[in-house]
């Protein structure tokens, strides 16, 4: 597998990812894009604010990419997360993989986003009109 592309960025350009994952040996590319949703529990979200412990986040994202490449036969992997203030509909995370056959990249793509959400030190604050909340902080 080629070296995974692992990044924390200010702005995500979703048009980049196809070129990054395209590969002569790949018959399939699977990409997940996470974006800012307008409502949380019927409350209107103004924006999301992401912060990270970048050094550790990059390390954890690299570990997740390596785990994925050990579980499935993959040619390329992208794991990219944005930080800063993001407005409704803006992309905040892009993960993807390419592989010879579609099953590997489909399963790897889900693993990449699910594991990122469990483990990578990135924090999201939901900004509502009258309050702000760190997501998942409390049970």
């Amino acid at each position: 597998m080629e070296k995974p592309i692992i990044e924390i960025v200010d702005i995500i350009d979703t048009s980049q990812v196809y070129g990054e994952l395209a590969h002569a040996g790949s018959g399939g590319i699977c990409v997940f894009v996470g974006s800012v949703r307008e409502f949380t529990n019927n409350e209107e979200v103004v924006s999301l604010e992401f912060e990270t412990y970048a050094k550790m986040a990059i390390k954890e994202m690299e570990k997740i990419a390596i785990e994925a490449s050990n579980k499935w036969v993959l040619n390329k992997i992208v794991v990219r997360h944005a930080v800063g203030v993001k407005n409704v509909q803006e992309p905040v995370v892009v993960v993807g993989a390419s592989s010879a056959h579609r099953n590997d990249c489909f399963e790897a793509c889900r693993f990449l986003i699910d594991t990122l959400k469990e483990r990578v030190p990135i924090w999201k604050k939901e900004i509502f009109k009258n309050k702000s909340v760190w997501v998942s902080a409390h049970p």
Binding site: G34, F50, T52, Y53, M56, A57, H81, V92, V93, I113, L116, K117, E118, R119, V120, P121, I122, W123, K124, W134, V135, S136, A137
Partner: peptide, 10 residues
């Protein structure tokens, strides 16, 4: 050393 409260990326 870093304190890591519940993460919420994605």
């Amino acid at each position: 050393i870093a304190i890591i409260p519940p993460v919420s990326g994605g």
